[in-house]
Design a binder for these strands. Structure first.
Length: 207
DNA sequence: GAATAGATTGTCT
DNA sequence: GACAATCTATTCT
């Protein structure tokens, strides 16, 4: 199963955060924790966060704390944080080392391990709500605090492309980001990307 | 399907 | 002590 996916190279993550967010649409998160079943999902929705200028990013103003530290490190690592007390959010560190940029993965389409995801989510295997949100996909893929700072070129958790579906051309839409507090002009920037028409996209696009 | 209220905890001020 | 890049159950229609 795992050999169905080609891991991306380290350089792939080093590109500017907006182009990375765009190009991640259609790529696949493969999760294979030791002793647990393999799960994988196609990324259908992302958002770019570009500190220190971006006032909606955790790294706004260059804020460098224990939590935001990984974003300042090498690209291609995971930034996982807790929000609203009970949901984890999975981000991919982008750009050059020292620039605190990251791509939030907001939704995936289940590809492998429907049963395992359904078990982790306490849902039926064909349910849309398996992975149509940042917290939901983390639960379904078994991603949590342990993965903060993890190298995303490792066999236990990596980003790749399906060997079969690589050539498939996707329609990618853009919109403003979702559920961010007032932060001047940053709120209306079209920094959310999604696969048009995919039913696992978390919310209807806004203008 | 859409709108609403309540839950819940690590991180930062 | 307040907040947060959300989720879930509930109550409508």
């Amino acid at each position: 199963m795992i050999e169905c996916f080609d891991p991306v190279s380290r350089e792939f993550f080093a590109q500017p955060v907006l182009s990375l967010a765009r190009r991640l649409i259609g790529s696949v998160i493969v999760s294979a924790p030791p002793g647990e079943a393999l799960t994988a999902g196609k990324i259908v929705e992302t958002e770019a966060y570009r500190g220190p200028d971006d006032l909606t990013a955790h790294s706004r103003g260059g804020l460098r704390t224990k939590r935001t530290e990984v974003m300042f490190g090498h690209p291609g690592h995971a930034y996982v944080f807790l929000l609203y007390g009970s949901s984890w959010a999975f981000n991919i560190v982008a750009g050059a080392e020292g620039s605190p940029h990251a791509v939030l993965v907001r939704a995936v389409e289940p590809l492998v391990g429907f049963g395992t995801m359904a078990l982790r989510r306490s849902r039926s295997a064909d349910h849309r709500e398996l992975t149509n949100g940042p917290g939901k996909l983390c639960q379904a893929l078994g991603i949590d605090k342990r993965h903060n700072g993890a190298d995303l070129t490792s066999p236990e958790l990596f980003i790749g492309f399906s060997k079969k579906a690589r050539a498939v051309k996707l329609r990618v839409g853009r919109s403003a980001r979702i559920n961010i507090a007032y932060a001047g002009s940053w709120v209306s920037r079209q920094w959310r990307f999604y696969e048009a028409g995919n039913r696992y996209v978390s919310a209807a696009p806004r203008i």
